[in-house]
């Protein structure tokens, strides 16, 4: 085994471990935000290192795998942002807000100001 193959195999192992943890997190976590957290970790670190490992195992595919990694790094944050924002806008607030702790939710004040502005218009 050459050094490239060993690096590729280690990256594949890290990627599959993160994908497994991401799947477990989506199953175990209590609310949408925590699940999104687990899911995005799986796609960024898991899928990226998996694809990079494939690139190390097949060096002629390296450029293609890098392009795929750039695409994932670009599209994954946008989609998870849109999911979290849509969930928030439908009044599914983070679980911590149901207790007495309210200082965590800075975004809520911003959105309420925006909504008030839109209503005034």
């Amino acid at each position: 085994m050459s050094a490239m193959e060993i690096i590729g195999a280690i990256l594949l192992l890290i990627g599959s471990a993160f994908l497994f943890l991401g799947g477990l997190g989506i199953y175990r976590m209590p609310d949408t935000y925590n699940r999104l957290q687990a899911g995005t970790k799986a796609t960024t670190l898991g899928a990226m290192s998996l694809i990079l490992g494939v690139g190390f195992l097949e060096p002629s595919w390296m450029i293609k795998t890098l392009i795929i990694i750039i695409f994932i790094a670009y599209s994954n944050p946008i989609s998870s942002h849109a999911l979290a924002r849509a969930n928030y806008k439908r009044k599914h607030f983070p679980l911590i807000l149901h207790g007495d702790v309210k200082e965590m939710d800075a975004y809520r004040e911003v959105t309420e100001k925006e909504e008030n502005k839109e209503e005034k218009k």
Partner: peptide, 19 residues
């Protein structure tokens, strides 16, 4: 439409659409 998309989505989709 319940609410309009945020600027992250609108700016990101501009680059994703041609791809």
């Amino acid at each position: 439409v319940l609410f309009s998309s945020s600027s992250i989505v609108t700016a990101g989709s501009k680059l994703l659409f041609p791809a």
